[in-house]
């Protein structure tokens, strides 16, 4: 658990004259769960796009397992705020999307997809089209699609942002369960400080104009975490630290 999986090395992104990200440095350990919070426009999504290979950085590198993956797609699993399920593919078809797009979804891919769906409570819905699913179910399918893409690093950009509070809490616990099962490294963006602290090993607080890392908080709250964790003193303490960091930035 101590070896470094991902190194973000002096990554800068500017759009024309505007500096969107100013010199980001961060090391992420193998199997670590890191959450990112910050005001709108602090460049969280831009940073994810750089790691996912959708955005070429103006300067800097993103090293994963010894190779620079900045601006090169196909190395990480990326999940967006919108579930982006393909309407004409069934649940199974959506889960195997990565395989279908990069080669061919084989019979064993489909079998694995069905098993994944069954394991996480969607076994009766494998042949459903997305429009027949609830919001929470759709997000589950989107996460399964990201898992089935078989990448060791997962980028989750506000995946539960559009869900109601109760579904969101269920999804957070489910995500922790999936994370514990899969042993992947997770980078998770959110606006919700509760969510950031509840999920993370470390919380990265970002600030805007230009986007940069302001603070990094270690979350020493023991796992497994439950609803009770949300009321524990160490959770509250950390949450107020993160909040005050965010508040001071915005007051500047």
């Amino acid at each position: 658990m101590t070896d470094t999986k991902l190194t973000i090395d002096s990554v800068e992104v500017s759009f024309g004259e505007t500096l969107a990200l100013a010199k980001i440095d961060l090391e992420v350990k193998n199997g670590e769960f890191v959450t990112f919070v910050g005001p709108s426009g602090c460049g969280k999504t831009t940073l994810m796009n750089v790691i996912a290979g959708l955005q070429q950085p103006t300067s800097g590198r993103v090293m994963m397992d010894g190779a620079d993956i900045a601006g090169k797609p196909g190395h990480v699993g990326y999940m967006f705020q919108k579930d982006l399920l393909i309407p004409w593919r069934t649940v199974t078809g959506n889960i195997v999307l990565g395989a279908a797009l990069t080669g061919r979804a084989t019979k064993s891919d489909r079998t694995a997809a069905r098993e994944l769906a069954a394991r996480y409570g969607l076994g009766d819905f494998v042949d459903h089209y997305p429009h027949a699913l609830s919001g929470g179910m759709r997000q589950r399918v989107a996460l399964m699609r990201t898992l089935a893409f078989h990448k060791e690093v997962l980028l989750l950009d506000e995946p539960f942002g559009a869900l109601d509070a109760q579904t969101r809490l269920e999804m957070q616990q489910w995500l922790l369960e999936v994370w514990a099962d899969s042993g992947r490294t997770v980078l998770f963006i959110t606006h919700d400080v509760d969510e950031a602290v509840f999920l993370a090993d470390r919380v990265v607080v970002m600030s805007a104009r230009p986007g940069r890392i302001q603070d990094v908080h270690e979350v020493a709250v023991p796992r497994p975490r439950t609803v009770d964790t949300l009321m524990s003193p160490e959770f509250m303490d950390l949450k107020s630290q993160v909040l005050s960091g965010l508040y001071h930035t915005e007051a500047e």
Partner: peptide, 23 residues
């Protein structure tokens, strides 16, 4: 077309031909 879908496909390393065909 939802640009997010195209971005998603690109992030998976899909080529333009596959994106056209499947998305």
């Amino acid at each position: 077309i939802d640009h997010g879908m195209v971005d998603l496909a690109r992030s998976m390393g899909a080529g333009e031909a596959k994106i056209f065909l499947l998305v």
